[in-house]
Design a binder for these strands. Structure first.
Lengths: 232, 232
DNA sequence: CGGCACGTTGAAGGGCTTCAAGCTCTGTGG
DNA sequence: CCACAGAGCTTGAAGCCCTTCAACGTGCCG
């Protein structure tokens, strides 16, 4: 197992920190191991830690009053979960669920504040991270406001192709994650039944193949046309 | 007309800056006067300025490929428009439309960078601003994903009550802005017809009164129950 | 190999959009 | 000052997209 110090230096967020600051920071952090299904924190609890994802995959979900879960964002290695919340002192706006067994490193408030006060470039990195997240969130708002379910699902499959797509020998792309109909539904503000029907239809059209929690995109370009609402 | 220097010191974002830094910053900024209907910038153009709202009201809209507009956020005095974009070097993700004649102050990249490098607390303020915006965006995503139009409209009316509500003598609250059905539709991912029907229905129920671009909430509490999907 | 989570498919129906037609208010220029 | 153009609003009708409920497969894992 690498040291926290070694791990930090591999991520963009800490790229500008001088060695000494990195050493110091590493001393204040701790490993956190989490299994699929775990929650790092619960919606509404008070925020006192942020988490740097070293390996694995997680998502931030919000629970609605009538029991549905909505996926707000997902996190891969290099992402930080709960940073904005920690810095504004609010309680967590959602729950962080572990999708694949993950190694994380915890980040407490005080060392974070010290870093922000002493290392201006770190603040800029944080700003850029938040700006990117805001940008993503705005795109999802536009999609949810103006697009049909089909378009949104096509778009989220294409995003997953970028993030976790593995090219197959014959030109198709396999999504290298466990991905249930329910997951896709929560990512797109729809129901698992609608997702099932949509995927089944696309399968009959030859656009993709799907098994239990597993999708292989055969014709990415056709999905692009659907996402952009162009004629086939 | 007050000087830019005087104006800056009234806003939270600049509260931590020492006098000298404020002086310097003010020298690099310029007044920008904009009328209702103006666009500060267009979606897709390159970002080279951010704007501090001194007075007036604006909104950020995204245009969809099929000609609809979606309102992403609105801005009041003290808010900064385009800051995240300016700092990440992306092109503007939407267009900034002036809703009420506004006085703004422009903020260029270089002085902003200098400020971030020399004044750590300024970076923290920016982070908190972006975190708050991200929080708002996540809430809208949850609403768009899981709630019906009625709930979302009720919620946005209640938000407007907080922001621009003026208490009337008889216990009702008037929204002190021009607010068309179209505006509400773009804020809630629906159509002006649905907004019109919804408001008409609420008017027959005695929850509110509405005229052209003008709404008076008679029973805010009833709207809260609708927003939370509780029985009446 | 039994149980349970995941997935499929059908049927019914409701919420919302879309298209259409006509109304009302507001500001402006003759 | 009034008429009129146009922006804003209302209301109806048709129908589609999607949800909801329900019943039944299917595959994985302990």
């Amino acid at each position: 197992m690498p040291t926290i110090r070694d791990v930090l230096s591999t991520f963009n967020l800490f790229a500008d920190l001088p060695p000494l600051a990195l050493d110091n920071l590493a001393l204040s952090m701790h490993w956190h191991h989490a299994m699929r299904g775990d929650l790092l924190f619960h919606q509404g609890t008070e925020s006192n830690l942020a988490y740097l994802v070293v390996s694995g995959r997680l998502r931030l979900i919000q629970h609605t009053s009538d029991g549905k879960d909505v996926t707000m964002a997902d996190f891969m290695p290099g992402d930080v979960i709960g940073l904005g919340t920690l810095l504004t002192g609010e309680s967590y706006p959602g729950s962080a669920e572990v999708l694949e067994t993950s190694e994380l490193v915890t980040l407490a408030g005080p060392p974070l504040w010290e870093l922000l006060n002493s290392q201006a470039m770190f603040g800029v990195r944080v700003i850029q991270m938040l700006a990117a997240r805001l940008h993503e969130a705005h795109n999802r708002i536009r999609e949810l406001s103006a697009e049909r379910v089909q378009q949104r699902v096509a778009r989220s499959l294409l995003r997953l192709v970028e993030k976790v797509g593995v090219a197959d020998h014959n030109g198709s792309v396999r999504l290298d994650i466990r991905l249930s109909r329910q997951d896709l539904a929560q990512m797109n503000g729809t129901t698992l039944e609608t997702i099932s029907r949509t995927l089944s239809f696309w399968e009959t059209e030859g656009l993709l193949e799907s098994r239990r929690e597993q999708i292989v995109i055969l014709k990415p370009h056709a999905l692009v046309r659907i996402a952009d609402d162009l004629p086939i």
